[in-house]
């Protein structure tokens, strides 16, 4: 693992919303093909953190370097990073007026400038991979929550990203649908994708994560391997949180 290079490097990332400081100086780095699970109580800044990584939120201090490119006002860098970093949202955010196929091929055609036929063939492969090839011509509103989230994952993968961000991908799902989404994510992790996952699914963290980051009050309170984290946490906050959640 140590021979892999760092693909994301954050140093002293700070972010305020008005008076409220959401991030108080995050310094961490993430290696290629690493799966990092971010956990923490609500309002701890974990979602804000991963949203700064593709500049959905603009950090105010510190630096973020992704694959050697620093996130600044530079249009070119933002474009480059957004097309290399895929993101999956809690509320799926599929486009309701487009079919599943159109949802997936939209960005490859217009951002990657792929010919339509090629984009559609690739999309079918992705739908196959997430297990719902028969739904291609339906509208998102006609699918179940789990299916919608799998389409959202396929949509992100269609841009062939090097990094995937997951912002609580299973929180809006009914319990019986969580597993189908987690299975897709596990498969993705095994295939060597660099992933940063904000989640409350501790089982997923134990099983798949290479490293766990625990966020509280806008800081990384504790980090380590899942074994270390779940069996012998050092920090009191971590212990309290784990006792509440497990």
């Amino acid at each position: 693992m140590n021979d892999k290079r760092d693909i994301i490097v954050c140093e002293g990332v700070k972010k305020w919303f008005g008076d409220f400081q959401a991030l108080k100086g995050i310094t961490t780095s993430i290696k290629e093909q690493e799966v990092v699970v971010v956990i923490g109580p609500s309002g701890s800044g974990k979602s804000t953190f991963i949203r700064t990584l593709n500049r959905l939120e603009v950090h105010q201090e510190g630096t973020i370097v992704i694959d050697g490119v620093e996130l600044t006002n530079d249009l070119k860098n933002i474009e480059k990073i957004r097309s290399e970093v895929g993101m999956v949202f809690q509320q799926f955010n599929l486009f309701p007026h487009l079919t599943v196929m159109q949802n997936i091929t939209l960005a490859p055609i217009w951002v990657r400038k792929k010919p339509k036929a090629e984009a559609e063939a690739d999309a079918m492969k992705l739908l196959d991979r997430v297990g719902i090839p028969e739904q291609a011509e339906k509208f998102p509103g006609q699918l179940s929550g789990g299916q919608q989230q799998r389409v959202a994952i396929a949509r992100s993968l269609a841009m062939e990203p090097r990094i995937m961000l997951f912002d609580e991908p299973t929180s809006a799902l009914d319990p019986e649908m969580i597993k189908e989404v987690l299975d897709v994510m596990k498969e993705l992790a095994l295939s060597g994708m660099t992933m940063i996952v904000v989640t409350h699914e501790m089982g997923f963290a134990k099983e798949v994560a290479d490293r766990v980051l625990f966020f509280d009050y806008g800081l990384v309170v504790e980090e380590g391997t899942p074994e270390h984290f779940f069996t012998s946490p050092e920090h009191d906050r971590t212990k309290l949180f784990l006792s509440q959640i497990l």
Binding site: N54, L56, E79, R82, S83, L106
Partner: peptide, 11 residues
């Protein structure tokens, strides 16, 4: 979320 998803896709 619609805007965010579209931005995240690089549109």
């Amino acid at each position: 979320g619609q805007y965010e998803a579209a931005r995240a896709m690089g549109l």
